[in-house]
Simulated scan of single mutants.
Amino acid sequence: MTKNINWGIMGCGGIAREFADALKAVEGANLIAAASKSGKAKQFAEDFNLAYYYDDYEEFVRNEEIDVVYVATTHNFHYENTMLCLNNNKHVLCEKAFTLNAKQASRLIEIAKSKKLFLMEAMWTRFSPALAKLISVIKAGVIGEIKTLKGDFCIDVPFDPKHRLYNINLAGGSLLDLGIYPITFACMILERYPVEITGTLNIGKTSVDQESHYLLKFDKGETALLSSACTYSAPIDFVIYGTKGRIVVPNFYFPAKLILMKNGKTEEIISVPYESNGKNYEAIEVMECILQNKTQSDKQTFYDTLKIMEILDSLREAYLTYPNENDF
């Protein structure tokens, strides 16, 4: 990349700070502005030496120096925040889950296409060096034909009805925040989407799913057994079982190594380190696409985002509806 691109960040929580740190490792990336409605923008701007900070999103998006916005607000605000950015001619990288449902996602995609603006969901795992290596190992036939995939993303978060994972008004629950990882990872590995989707969501006293289990079946007979939870912890691992062995991917939401096993024994450990904190790779993809005047990434397409949103919609249909999710 030869041209500098100016970034703005909307929402100044923990993940916004991680992304701001990642931008330091990206050539040509200039983070110049941040905005927050919770009063965090000033401190954020001081910490990252930004030229601008805003407590008002309308004022933020009117800053003509900003080329692209990273939307790092809670799930319930993704649709309206991204729409605001697009309507003010900003390219957008929006955190996952992209929106509350597929209908919202489809509408944002329509707007981005019509205005010829770049738009992408921030599924950072898709851009990790380890994922590319994993897929190449699988395609080389090292573990034979894939039969089953198993992945869990379960973390123990103390119950607090105001916490984003337990608050239905913030579109909380384990599915959108954590379950999206194993679901997306399974689809990325197989490079296809399921033909059958079933699941069970355990709804807690704040009306969001605290523990969820998913079963995906694919057209060649492969199955994916997946789970997410915010009430207990478990190894955040993903395992791909094949006819000749299996591959274990520790911390699969952003992995650094692959463990190849055959006959119950470790045969090889493949180290695939990453630079910075890993979110730099998705930022690089965004910037390269913008410089090429693309509206979507070839690696994280609109189709990919819509298919994942449709899976999430299907899983929670009988269990969970978020307030005002269809009012747009």
Results as ranks from 00 to 15, higher is better:
residue 157 V to C: 13
residue 104 Q to T: 14
residue 308 I to Y: 09
residue 199 G to F: 07
residue 96 K to C: 07
residue 292 Q to L: 13
residue 301 T to D: 03
residue 34 A to L: 07
residue 1 M to E: 10
residue 292 Q to N: 14
residue 297 S to R: 08
residue 5 I to R: 01
residue 105 A to M: 06
residue 31 L to V: 07
residue 82 T to S: 13
residue 71 V to I: 13
residue 36 S to D: 12
residue 253 Y to T: 13
residue 192 R to I: 08
residue 43 Q to W: 05
residue 295 T to M: 14
residue 168 I to Y: 07
residue 88 N to T: 10
residue 302 F to Y: 10
residue 61 V to N: 02
residue 37 K to P: 02
residue 144 G to A: 06
residue 224 A to Y: 05
residue 220 K to T: 11
residue 223 T to P: 00
residue 315 L to Y: 05
residue 277 N to A: 06
residue 66 I to G: 01
residue 4 N to G: 10
residue 98 F to I: 09
residue 314 S to M: 15
residue 124 W to A: 14
residue 66 I to A: 02
residue 68 V to S: 01
residue 91 H to L: 02
residue 108 L to C: 09
residue 144 G to L: 03
residue 74 T to D: 14
residue 292 Q to V: 10
residue 104 Q to E: 14
residue 73 T to Y: 03
residue 314 S to Y: 04
residue 1 M to F: 13
residue 315 L to D: 02
residue 20 A to K: 00
residue 281 Y to K: 11
residue 236 I to L: 13
residue 229 A to F: 10
residue 136 S to Y: 11
residue 284 I to S: 00
residue 169 N to K: 14
residue 87 N to W: 05
residue 169 N to P: 04
residue 310 E to Q: 15
residue 283 A to L: 04
residue 292 Q to H: 15
residue 267 E to L: 12
residue 158 P to L: 03
residue 217 K to W: 08
residue 131 L to A: 05
residue 163 H to R: 07
residue 227 S to A: 12
residue 236 I to A: 03
residue 30 N to E: 08
residue 175 L to V: 12
residue 194 P to S: 11
residue 34 A to P: 06
residue 130 A to C: 15
residue 295 T to F: 15
residue 86 L to E: 01
residue 279 K to Y: 13
residue 163 H to L: 11
residue 25 A to C: 10
residue 230 C to A: 04
residue 93 L to K: 04
residue 319 Y to A: 13
residue 266 T to G: 08
residue 240 I to V: 15
residue 309 M to A: 11
residue 24 K to A: 12
residue 80 E to H: 14
residue 253 Y to V: 13
residue 229 A to M: 11
residue 295 T to D: 14
residue 132 A to P: 10
residue 130 A to T: 15
residue 7 W to V: 01
residue 117 L to G: 03
residue 229 A to P: 05
residue 54 Y to A: 03
residue 167 N to G: 04
residue 260 L to R: 11
residue 170 L to T: 02
residue 69 V to C: 03
residue 306 L to P: 03
residue 263 N to I: 07
residue 6 N to Y: 12
residue 105 A to S: 14
residue 307 K to P: 06
residue 183 I to V: 12
residue 5 I to A: 00
residue 197 I to T: 11
residue 290 I to M: 12
residue 71 V to W: 02
residue 74 T to G: 09
residue 3 K to L: 08
residue 325 E to K: 02
residue 243 T to V: 09
residue 74 T to Y: 10
residue 119 L to D: 00
residue 195 V to P: 05
residue 244 K to M: 11
residue 215 L to P: 01
residue 180 I to L: 11
residue 40 K to V: 02
residue 257 K to E: 10
residue 234 A to P: 00
residue 272 V to Q: 10
residue 82 T to V: 15
residue 164 R to I: 15
residue 325 E to L: 05
residue 306 L to V: 04
residue 193 Y to P: 04
residue 30 N to G: 05
residue 285 E to V: 14
residue 11 G to V: 02
residue 66 I to W: 04
residue 198 T to K: 07
residue 302 F to A: 01
residue 223 T to H: 00
residue 94 C to K: 02
residue 166 Y to S: 05
residue 13 G to R: 06
residue 194 P to T: 10
residue 232 Y to C: 03
residue 222 E to M: 09
residue 170 L to M: 13
residue 42 K to Q: 10
residue 225 L to W: 04
residue 77 F to T: 05
residue 171 A to G: 13
residue 118 F to R: 01
residue 63 N to V: 13
residue 298 D to K: 10
